[in-house]
Design a protein around this nucleic acid. Structure first.
Length: 688
RNA sequence: GCCGGCGUGGCGCAAUUGGUAGCGCACUCGACUUGUAAUCGAGCGGUUCCCGGUUCGAGUCCGGGCGUCGGCUCCA
């Protein structure tokens, strides 16, 4: 984000003579001590971050770590968390400390307090923190002799005592908390007055920290929230304060600007502004309706996806939204996931005169998944090895009873449509099928303008799984090989798999660099058995097929939300709900534009002519705000010349383009599915 | 589900310590006929999310519900 001096970025390495400090050695070697590249900690030969005050027993080489590096930022943020905790305990003497680690883009600290923090509290705390930072308190490391010493010292801090116990039993907890308790000896970091040496405040902490509070150049408290102690919902909730801290004011400003941009792109906001979709209260939480414009974008997405699936050898199926419970008993969903399903509709029960049940009736459920239905289609007749791989595709609507607190815009809904397919294949086909599938997935995402990916491989949760070790190994290896063949970065997610299947998920980064989990590919180790799926092999024997689940968009709703944010509402022309708007200078020019619109419409272009009783300038503003890719203006000059004048989203223009050229240029641009926004510089039409 | 914030025409907002709801945009009608981001005027539109309570009187205070926002937990 902020340019760093090459000297420090290139891992300046110096030798620290025994008995001197890392900081002194680095300073002697010319590492900067001020500005955004100031060194804040050092890295020892084992790669462990060390305070600059660290003095090795014998001569040792260390690397400089600058404030603007990821590690440097973490240390600044963690140090800032200590400053926050000190400020909180100053204003709220009874506040008990939880933990305060650095996180992506900032830090937090959890407190047990009598009442939640208010925005006014944050303002006061910020002020106090600035005073602490200005005072230049030194961070001073102190090793505690034993767990007993630690407990004596931390007698007033129940949560810290728990951490000491945890550490004693070498339990590993959330990686976020490594900075707090980690491995090794128990240490306390004291904040010490720069002149008197008096200890002002201290916290159990593994470190490292910046040399003094003055090395926290820029911070901001962001918001408060409740959080369960150690992330467990059965534990008490603590009050969390989130903040952000950076190596320079500029870096902080940039980060705040990034957040503002993300807010401007929020698909929930754009959804209303661009009239794409809404969430009427009358329908219910997490249940969107798509308006004509959103519906158009969605239809184009689906049409394109269908075409690609057809080309890739998929067959299209359909299944109902509800089913008898029996199906989900067979599939096991009622055992494992009943909580996340909408409760059943109990139908066809008959009571006798005396109120006793004469006929028990049936439970019907809304489907949370499509796979059981596809399995029944597979099983509807005998299958031959010649038919495999059999790829069954459906835009399947599913309903999941997400907890009320997690529903979020289009990215977490209770009713969604998946671009869902299940592939049934022979064991020999598995590897090849997964490899070509991954290529297919990435191609499709690229066609929608996403091209920055990494993959995540979720492997078995040893506490919760079905199937044998061999099955898991085979399926996981097939996924891993395919992932490696893609050449993309692969992140491991140990234990992250569903109980029935290892998974590759494609994480796509949007225009702001935010990663979204979109596509998933899973090898199912349970359902072929549960549904007793079979095919007849070449030798006449009955065999069990392998089954792959996959969704490319994930859900159409979620993908729609992600694309909306990726493009900030300015969809590529081929996806835009309205591709062209004709704007007459005066009423007498409407007829000419209607003719142009007719020609465009005949070529499949979504075009409107704005003949309303408004000023031309007003119309330009309206349709620019609506992010229409092509505005075609026409006045007397254009009508005379049989031309139109282009205005693009970015305000650039090309005037006096012959109608045929204009129609050709627009049609071509849309047909090529260009993902850039058209502009005068991009569009291949000759100047008059 | 848990903690906290919020809920006023379709949208964005306003309404002293409790005194009977205003503004902008959008929409409708009329006038204007305009060359690259907001023409002027008039009008329509609200059971202040819902239910209950306190009060002479509630948008405002209290209780419950629903929705929503930020987190936590969860995410087959």
């Amino acid at each position: 984000m902020v340019a760093s001096s090459p000297a420090v970025q290139a891992a300046l390495r110096v030798t620290v003579p025994a008995g001197t400090t890392a900081g002194q050695a680095l300073r002697d070697a010319g590492a900067p001590t001020t500005g955004s590249d100031a060194l804040v900690v050092a890295r020892d030969p084992q790669g462990v971050l060390r305070d600059l005050a660290w003095a090795p027993d014998s001569d040792t080489e260390v690397d400089a770590v600058s404030a603007s590096s990821p590690d440097g930022r973490s240390v600044i943020r963690h140090s800032c968390a200590h400053v926050l905790a000190q400020a909180v305990q100053q204003h709220f003497p009874d506040a008990k400390l939880g933990i305060g680690p650095p996180v992506a883009d900032g830090f937090y600290y959890d407190f047990d307090v009598d009442r939640p923090f208010t925005p006014e509290d944050l303002a006061v705390l910020e002020k106090t923190m600035r005073r602490i930072i200005k005072a230049g308190q030194r961070f001073s490391r102190r090793v505690l002799g034993s767990a007993e010493d630690a407990k004596r010292e931390l007698a007033d801090e129940p949560y810290k005592l728990e951490l000491v116990d945890l550490k004693a039993s070498t339990v590993t907890i959330d990686p976020d908390e490594v900075m707090e308790i980690g491995a090794g000896e128990l240490t306390v970091y004291d904040n010490v007055h720069p002149h008197t040496g008096e200890t002002i405040w201290g916290d159990l902490c593994r470190g490292p920290h910046v040399p003094t509070t003055r090395h926290i150049p820029a911070f901001r408290l962001m918001r408060t929230a409740a959080a369960y102690w150690r992330g467990n919902e059965h534990n008490p909730q603590l009050q969390r304060i989130y903040g952000t801290a950076w190596e320079s004011t500029e870096a902080l400003e940039q980060h705040l600007e990034f957040l503002a941009e993300a807010q401007r792109r929020d698909h929930r906001k754009l959804g209303a502004e661009l009239d794409l979709f809404s969430f009427p209260d009358e329908i219910g939480s997490g249940l969107p309706v798509f308006h004509p414009r959103g519906g158009t974008v969605r239809r184009v997405m689906e049409d394109y996806s269908r075409r690609r699936h057809e080309e890739a050898g998929y067959e299209f199926v359909n299944s109902p939204h509800i089913t008898k419970g029996q199906l989900f008993e067979t599939s096991g969903h009622l055992d494992w996931y009943a909580d996340a399903m909408f409760p059943p509709m109990h139908l066809d029960e008959e009571l006798a005169e005396d109120g006793t049940v004469r006929k028990p009736g049936q439970d019907y459920y809304l489907k949370p998944m499509n796979c059981p239905f596809h399995n029944l289609i597979y099983r509807s007749r005998g299958r031959s090895y010649r038919e495999l791989p059999l790829r069954l595709f459906e835009f399947g609507s599913v309903y999941r009873y997400e907890k009320s607190g997690v529903v979020h815009g289009l990215t977490r809904v209770r009713g969604m449509t998946q671009d869902d397919a299940h592939i049934y294949c022979t064991p020999e086909q598995l590897q090849g099928e997964i490899c070509s599938l991954l290529t297919f997935v990435l191609d499709l995402l690229r066609d929608f303008g996403l091209d920055d990916f990494y993959l995540e491989l979720s492997t078995r949760d040893d506490e919760k799984y079905v199937g044998t070790d061999e099955q898991w190994e085979e399926a996981t290896d097939a996924l891993r090989l395919a992932a490696e063949a893609s050449g993309l970065e692969l992140v491991l997610d140990p234990g992250g798999a569903a109980f029935y299947a290892p998974k590759i998920s494609v994480q796509a980064k949007d225009a702001l660099g935010r990663a979204w989990q979109l596509s998933t590919i899973q090898v199912d180790l349970q359902e072929p058995d549960l549904f007793k799926l079979e095919y007849t092999a070449k030798d006449g024997s009955r065999q069990r097929p392998y089954m792959i689940h996959r969704a490319l968009f994930g859900s159409i709703e979620r993908f729609f939300g992600v694309l909306t944010e990726h493009y900030a509402g300015a969809f590529p022309a081929w996806l835009a709900p309205v591709q062209v708007v004709g704007i007459p200078i005066a009423d007498e020019h409407v007829e000419h534009l209607q003719q142009v619109a007719k020609a465009l419409r005949a070529r499949g272009i979504r075009v409107e002519v704005d003949a309303s009783d408004e000023r031309m300038q007003k119309k330009i503003r309206t349709h620019t705000t609506q992010k229409v890719p092509f505005l075609l203006l026409a006045g007397g000059k254009d009508v005379e010349a049989g031309a139109v004048s282009f205005r693009f989203r970015d305000g650039t223009q090309i005037n006096g383009v012959g109608v045929e050229d204009a129609v050709g240029a627009i049609t071509g641009w849309v047909a090529r599915r260009e993902n850039r926004s058209p502009s005068a510089a991009e569009l291949p039409i000759g100047q008059p």
